[in-house]
């Protein structure tokens, strides 16, 4: 099977066709946990410097798909992937691909905030350090920048040596975003980043996502359809391991092409 990747692609934005550079392209992607197939022939192109939301009922494969993009599924025994995923036209599953470099380019924020049981400073500095930055002044600068980008600097600048686990839930999640930003990724994967947070902390994360869009390509998995509508420009709807529909977020929510999508976004199931 010859799999071709588009150099550019056009998609409607508020009714007008807009041309985007494709950042991530998945073609004929299938994924298996042992004998169980979790993804079926996914074809999806994710535009650069936009927020793309992945929605769908529990177990639809949206998180699995997200984790194929930084090869986090590799850490689970017995998984298998077919098809192809490219980032900037480079096949990330090609033999000899350096997973370390890939994960440096593709940052990830998890559903449950997971700061290391270390100080705030050490949490942010961990990534740069493992990638070889030793200079203390450079590290301090990086920590400050990352915390500022994540909107956490003002709250923690006087207590960088406090244990990160003493922060509030919302602060911990922004710390995790700052930690991901510190290794200077191009793509940010977010797996239901606000599902464990209260409405105010959620609003802060959503604002942050909108701010980060200009510099990063963001892919966010969410259960919450209002959230998808608020933060994303594009939305992919998954069901039972298949991609049902991908479109401009506004269009997908107001004029879906597929009956299944319509049923889901109008709350008839899921």
């Amino acid at each position: 099977m010859v799999i071709t990747m588009p150099a550019a692609f056009t998609i409607e934005r508020h009714g007008d066709p807009v041309e985007f550079k494709p950042k991530v392209v998945a073609r004929h992607l299938s994924f298996y946990y042992g004998a169980v197939q979790a993804l079926f022939d996914i074809n999806l192109t994710i535009p650069e410097n936009q927020v793309t939301a992945l929605i769908g009922p529990s177990g639809c494969g949206k998180s699995t798909f997200l984790r194929t993009l930084n090869r986090m599924n590799d850490t689970i025994d017995g998984t298998r992937l077919e098809g192809k995923i490219t980032i900037d036209n480079q096949d990330i599953y090609k033999n000899g691909t350096d997973v370390v470099t890939l994960r440096k380019r593709v940052g990830m924020v998890f559903q449950k905030s997971n700061p290391f049981p270390k100080s705030i400073f050490e949490n942010i500095a961990y990534g740069p350090k493992i990638h070889g930055i030793r200079n203390k002044a450079v590290l301090e600068e990086l920590v400050e920048q990352s915390l500022k980008r994540a909107g956490l600097w003002e709250e923690v600048k006087d207590r960088l040596h406090l244990n990160a686990l003493d922060l509030s839930g919302g602060q911990q999640q922004r710390l995790c975003i700052a930690r991901a930003l510190a290794v200077d990724p191009e793509i940010l994967l977010m797996d239901e980043p606000a599902s464990a947070l209260d409405p105010r902390a959620t609003a802060r994360i959503e604002d942050l996502i909108s701010e980060l869009r200009s510099d990063y390509t963001i892919v966010i998995v969410t259960h919450n359809m209002q959230q998808a509508a608020r933060v994303s420009q594009y939305t992919a709807f998954f069901m039972e391991g298949r991609l049902v529909e991908f479109d401009d977020t506004e269009k997908l929510f107001t004029k879906p092409k597929e009956k299944q999508t319509e049923d889901y976004v109008t709350g008839r199931f899921g």
Partner: peptide
């Protein structure tokens, strides 16, 4: 989740074991 966070930042297995 600590392991995942470390691996997702691009740390290899040995770094993750000894630093986290």
């Amino acid at each position: 989740s600590y392991l995942d966070a470390s691996l997702a930042l691009g740390a290899n297995r040995v770094q993750t074991i000894f630093k986290i």
